[in-house]
Computed example of a mutant assay.
Amino acid sequence: MKTDKRVKRISAARLPTVWGSFVVYCYKSMSDGLEHVAMVKGDIEDGKDVLVRVHSECLTGDIFKSARCDCGNQLELAMQKIEEAGRGVVVYLRGHEGRGIGLGYKLRAYNLQDDGLDTVQANVELGLPVDSRGYSVGAQILKDLGVRTMKLMTNNPAKCVGLKGFGIEITNRVPVLTPITKDNKRYLETKGAKMGHVYGAETEDEYSS
C-alpha cells in the first residue's frame, strides 16, 4: 500500500468558491473507481508545512447541513482557514459515508440513535465496524500534489496515524473546533470518550511543533 500507485489524476480546473479561488483536482481510485477531490489554494510547490484537511465524505452534513454531526462545519472551517493562510489543501475522500458504512446504514443508525444508542453502539447493533475508513488514497493524493510535510487539521489522532508511513511527515496537528449544539453534543462526546478525538484545551499532542 505504501508503494503501489492507487490513484490517477484525471483532471483539474480553477474553482471560485465563497472562500476564494481554488484549483480543484479530480483523482480516480484504481481499486474501486471512486473519484476523489483535492482543493488546492496557493503555491504549495515546495511541499513544506502545507496546511491540510483530509475530509471524509458526509452527504448529510456537508450538503444538507445536518445538525447531528460537525462534519459540514469542519469542512467549512478548513476551507476558511486555508483561504486565510493563503495556501493549503483539502482532500475530500468519497466512500467514507458514516465512517465507511454507507448512507443507507447510516440512516438506520440514526434511528437507533434516536432510540437512545450512541453512534458507536448503533454501528455495533447493526453488526458493522465502528470505523472502517482508510487514508492511503488520501495520502497518495497528497504525495501526487507534492506535499512532503503538513500541518494536519483534525481532532482525530487516529487520522494522523492512518496517514503516517506514506512518506509524508505530520509536523503539527491543528484542531478544528466548531460549535457544540444540543443536536451534536452527544455525538461529539462519544467521539471523545470512545474514539479518542481531542477537543478544547486538550489539543496538544506529539504532532504539535
Rank of each mutant, 00 (worst) to 15 (best):
Q80Y: 08
Q80W: 05
K81Q: 13
I82E: 11
E83N: 04
E84T: 09
E84Y: 05
E84F: 06
A85V: 09
A85Y: 11
A85S: 15
A85L: 09
G86H: 10
R87G: 11
G88V: 09
G88N: 07
G88F: 08
V89S: 05
V89H: 04
V89G: 05
V89C: 04
V90H: 06
V90C: 05
V91R: 04
V91F: 02
Y92M: 13
R94I: 11
R94P: 01
G95C: 05
G95Q: 04
G95M: 08
H96K: 11
H96E: 06
H96S: 03
H96M: 11
E97Y: 07
G98L: 02
I101W: 04
G102P: 06
L103S: 09
L103E: 08
G104S: 06
G104A: 12
Y105R: 03
Y105K: 09
L107S: 03
L107R: 04
R108F: 02
R108K: 15
A109L: 00
Y110T: 00
Y110F: 04
Y110I: 00
N111C: 01
N111A: 13
L112S: 07
L112A: 07
L112F: 06
Q113G: 10
Q113E: 15
G116H: 15
G116E: 14
L117C: 10
L117T: 09
L117R: 11
L117P: 10
D118H: 03
T119I: 15
N123K: 13
N123V: 01
N123A: 05
N123D: 15
E125Y: 11
E125T: 08
L126Y: 12
G127H: 12
G127T: 10
L128N: 03
L128W: 03
L128C: 00
L128E: 00
P129M: 00
V130G: 02
V130N: 02
V130Y: 01
